[in-house]
Amino acid sequence: MRRTLLQSVFLYTCVFAVAIFTTGPLLWLVTMSVSAPTDLTEVPLRWIPSEFDFSRYGALLDIDGGSGERFLSALRNSILTAGGATAIALFLAIPAAYSFSRRNASMVLLFAFLATIMMPPITYILPLYSTFSSLGMLNKTITLVIVYTAMLLPFATWLMKANIDVLPLEVEQAAFMEGASTAYTIRTVVLPLALPAIAATAMLSFLVAWDEFFYALIFTNDLSAKTLPVAIADFSAGRVTDYGVIASVGVLATLPPAILAICFQKFIVSGLVAGSVKG
């Protein structure tokens, strides 16, 4: 069907509006991060910076500076926490998913898995806090890795299950016929076939862990374990006079997930959609 001129105008107006709405706040964040501090306190605002000032990024990436140390240690903690939890969660999720997919484990149990992450974290937080406190495990990266593993596990299991479901059953049966054990079959046959799914699951899990704030807020209190979200909240709550610093931290923290999201858009979208649509 051909569009009339009026329809075209309307369509492109909508497209433009949506594009502005989605990218506007981000563009502004980036602009703030490179504006001169005085630009940011003009009234009304200067939308185009008088000069481009990248010094904040330099400071944040300099380990010897005060804010650089805060930022870089938080970055390190975030990478370790999210990466570690993703790796362990996948390691546990794949056998579990195989059990749900190929060994008739009950769907009600899978749903119970999912229900654990749907509950508000405040339901778990206090006993966890007391336990970790009495074990002397507060303010440790490993503690967050443990908690995040539990947080990522149900979702990862579910995504992997949906993906194993569609792998050809006969190939596995052939491996069994040839005498392979279940463990050997999973390792040599199922995992290579499921590699794209594993990558997608790992990526989504990493993003979820990267985003987590509540547990990190409660369980960490200094540079040795604080993750980026907590560090950013600190930056923003502190008496920072230069809003550009906050903006630059935000931009840096957004870069990894944004790059992953754009590059692996297909992966992530299908994962998200599978995650929301399938039962």
């Binding site: 989605t22 990267w210 979200p229 935000g250 997930p257 944004a258 999201a261």
Partner: peptide, 10 residues
């Protein structure tokens, strides 16, 4: 997809 990728805290 970008807003979705922005961390909640950011």
């Amino acid at each position: 997809i970008l807003p979705w990728a922005v961390p909640t805290i950011v």
